[in-house]
Nucleic acid binder design. Structure first.
Lengths: 156, 156
DNA sequence: TTTTGTAGTCAATCAAGTTGACTATATTGC
DNA sequence: GCAATATAGTCAACTTGATTGACTACAAAA
């Protein structure tokens, strides 16, 4: 533990552990040829799975405007990861769904995250990893009670 | 634990716990009249303390370019939180130091973070908080061995 | 069936970063 | 000791990912 790390407070620890994880994830996605997938897209994919989602749903999920979502979808559609389908019952709306290529990215992402988590387990032990997740889940849950979804935007 | 939270993976947990912390911090700083302090500034202040820092040092610490640092310093200097002083030995350089008002923000920030951490301790217990910090410190340390400072940019 | 609300897009703007070019000063090498 | 090279900081132009505002097409409520 050198000097840089001794004075890290809780905010810095959470931020740095998150960046560490997400940097490795996207370095490795890049090497697999998914360099056009940016950190911001991961959480969007999660909401699209498994049955698609409307732009408004994605906007709420991500905590950004529908216009910003529309631009992200433009980008991902152009790159071939998602497509806009006409909404079955609402002619105003569209549903954004994953293409086959989109599913490949999601699968690659899951595998890499599992691998990183496995490596982290070797560092701290399985029980501590289990506890880490439980503790963070509880904190996120309790600390946001009442203020849900609007403030809960994962920025990465 | 409602449905939103059941499927959060490690990346989401780290991201959301960090956002939760940082959102409350800046909401409260805002209410104290420090609405012009943005999340990005916190980590910069930490490097300026206690004896000031040059632009290059801040750039390396934050993982952004010196030009970006220069702009941030413009902003913070205009708002009265820091000043540029001539460097004692290098006439090319300047040292950025906190003003009295800058110290007030730092103090307020520390107090609020301590309070939030205290509240979190009431939720999960002191031992678990202790362990949370130990585990995250170890992960950040081990997972970044060799790749230091360049990749370690806390984005908030 | 008229009025009001909602989903999505287009356009202009903003904020925070980038790259490139420049000035002034330091450092190095012959 | 001086010429060549490197470094700290700033200015300007551009990029990216968001925002707000205006609009169209359709849906839901009065």
């Amino acid at each position: 533990m050198n000097q840089v790390f001794n004075e890290l407070d809780l905010a810095a620890l959470l931020s740095l552990s998150f960046s560490t994880l997400i940097n490795e994830l996207h370095d490795r996605l890049s090497k697999l040829g998914y360099g056009d997938i940016k950190p911001a897209h991961g959480f969007m994919f999660k909401r699209i799975i498994p049955n698609g989602a409307t732009g408004m749903e994605l906007a709420e999920h991500l905590g950004i405007t529908k216009q910003a979502v529309s631009k992200m979808v433009d980008y991902l559609e152009k790159s071939g990861y998602v497509i806009r389908q006409t909404h079955p019952t609402d002619k105003r709306g569209k549903i954004i769904v994953l293409t086959e290529q989109g599913w490949l990215v999601v699968k690659a992402k899951e595998e890499i995250l599992t691998e990183i988590e496995q490596r982290w387990i070797e560092i701290i032990g399985a029980e501590r990893m289990q506890m880490l997740k439980e503790v963070l889940t509880k904190l996120v849950y309790v600390a946001n009670e009442g203020t849900l979804s609007s403030r809960l935007r994962p920025v990465w």
